[in-house]
Design a protein around this nucleic acid. Structure first.
Length: 486
DNA sequence: TTTTGAGTTGTTCGA
DNA sequence: GTCGAACAACTCAAA
């Protein structure tokens, strides 16, 4: 095989179609294309119909991630072609226009994306264009972890054991050192895709918190495995400590792959045996991502359909007012409100707080989990097509391996346990900052003089509780009992 | 085929 | 203050 030295070569190019895999390293489709002697067209399409339309926070992330990848590609001689519209139509047209010899992409687990890929493959075949889909998004394909009936495994622990029994996933692939991309192919301007908010520009909190892109993702992983993972097992639930990796949005957009994380963590564990417990626990979280994706593979309507059908009978409350107070962090329960405001400001929420606020919406307010799922989808930078609905269903009790219905978080106890000095609450609810730690998670129990001393007016500067915990708990238990009996 | 036992993340109550 | 039991019943994996 000869290697063409001419950048103007007119030989047929290979199109690499990027989706939620905005990285150059460990990218099987790009790696395969770059190994040939062909020039490579790197293509990203904003297709609002192909998959679930992105939420606002995710759109902001996408814009910045794409910008970062444009720069990374240019640094090795390549170029990113940006388009908007129907993926199928655009790829077929581009393949014809450029006389492409092949189209490569990485597999996606979501049903709509798979359908598009199948249609695309059929269309390309008719045109005589080769196409290949590569595994790259998962540690193991769903087909490798099945139960006796050929379905997915619905309980996490056996799922995890089976995944571990498969052994290490493939080693990550290197990024191409150089790339040739044909010139003269039309690309949209990123700004014209209007992914970032302008009127108003509400993204300042996101900009202060995050740096999207592959380089940032791998720096964060390195930093986390270098120091952060120490005491991960013990401290990961603490809201007032910075004990988690914050890799989730990077993983969501494929700026880093699960295989890269897996192997880097294994390497770190071999290097520092004292950390192996913490690293095992960290890898388990990667296992949960995997579990949720496999669940989505078998249940394409995970975001709308109760996995346990008896939940279809559940009588949810309709209250736009209560929903809005929850969304805005005005429930009167400090740990809930702090979480909802962290989310609104940064596009992120600590995992423990996600459980607390989700339990509060579903059980204290009896509002349909789908409403909460949609709010998270719109506001989280890491809103994941699998994890988000799967975990909402888990909290609600309608999901796989779900929490039992009587497990109702007490927001006061959870706050006192995981934010003992109230540092997390004070950070996000400055109006409560003057309260002593003993009252920070239960301001309604403060005496008038304590309130005055803290310069706090309950009902004005901070709301009274939207529901009383014990009564709400009993109401939830009764609602579940009724569903069971109906 | 049948049986057995386990199942991410809790709270409350009463001894 | 600490501890164990109750909260219920069901689904699923695996022997």
């Amino acid at each position: 095989m000869t290697i063409s030295s001419s950048p103007q070569s007119s030989e047929p190019p290979i199109i690499v179609w990027f989706r939620d895999d905005l990285r150059l390293s460990d990218h099987p489709a790009l790696h395969a294309a770059a190994r040939t002697d062909a020039s490579v067209i790197c293509l990203y399409i904003l297709d609002e119909r192909e998959a679930r339309p992105l939420g606002g926070a995710a759109r902001w992330w996408l814009a910045n991630s794409v910008r970062s990848m444009q720069a990374a590609l240019e640094a090795i001689g390549g170029r990113l072609v940006l388009r908007r519209g129907s993926s199928l139509k655009i790829i077929v047209e581009l393949a014809q226009q450029t006389g492409a010899r092949a189209v490569y992409w990485n597999d996606a687990v979501e049903a709509r994306q798979q359908r598009t890929a199948q249609n695309l493959a059929a269309n390309l075949k008719m045109l005589g264009v080769d196409c290949r889909a590569f595994p790259g998004d998962l540690l193991a394909p769903p087909s490798a972890i099945r139960n006796d009936e050929g379905g997915g495994i619905k309980v996490f622990t056996p799922f995890w054991r089976r995944l571990m029994a498969l052994g290490d996933p493939n080693k990550p692939l290197p990024a191409p050192k150089s790339l040739r991309s044909p010139a003269g192919i039309f690309s949209e301007n990123l700004d014209e895709l209007a992914l970032e908010p302008t009127q108003p520009d509400w993204a300042s909190g996101l900009r202060e918190t995050w740096l999207p892109g592959e380089a940032s993702a791998s720096a964060r992983l390195r930093c986390f495995l270098g120091q952060g993972v120490e005491s991960y097992r013990d401290n990961r639930d603490r809201l007032d400590l910075d004990a988690t990796s914050h890799l989730s949005p990077h993983l969501r957009f494929g700026e880093i792959s699960p295989r890269q994380i897996w192997h880097a963590a294994r390497f770190a564990a071999a290097d520092r045996p004292g950390l192996s417990n913490d690293i095992e626990k960290f890898l388990t979280e990667l296992g949960w991502r995997e579990f949720c994706r496999h669940l989505l593979f078998d249940n394409p309507d995970l975001e709308t359909r109760n996995l346990r059908a008896n939940f279809d009978e559940f009588l949810w409350r309709e209250s736009r007012g209560d929903l809005r107070r929850w969304q805005r962090g005005r429930t009167g329960y400090p740990v809930v409100d702090a979480g909802m405001r962290e989310l609104w400001r940064t596009g992120f929420m600590h995992n423990r707080v996600r459980m607390i606020v989700a339990s509060f919406l579903v059980k204290h307010l009896l509002i349909d989990w789908r409403q909460g799922e949609r709010w998270f989808w719109d506001t989280l930078v890491d809103a994941d097509i699998g994890s988000n609905p799967a975990n909402w269903q888990w909290v609600a009790g309608s999901g796989a391996d779900a929490a039992p219905y009587f497990r109702i978080f007490n927001p006061v106890l959870q706050g006192e346990r995981f934010d003992p000095d109230g540092a997390y609450v004070r950070r996000w609810l400055p109006e409560l900052a003057g309260l002593p730690s003993s009252l920070i998670h239960r301001p309604w129990t403060a005496t008038p003089s304590q309130l005055e001393h803290a310069k706090l007016k309950l009902g004005t500067s901070y709301p009274e509780p939207i529901v009383e915990h014990t009564a709400a708990r009993e109401r939830a238990l009764a609602a579940y009992a009724k569903m069971r009996g109906s």
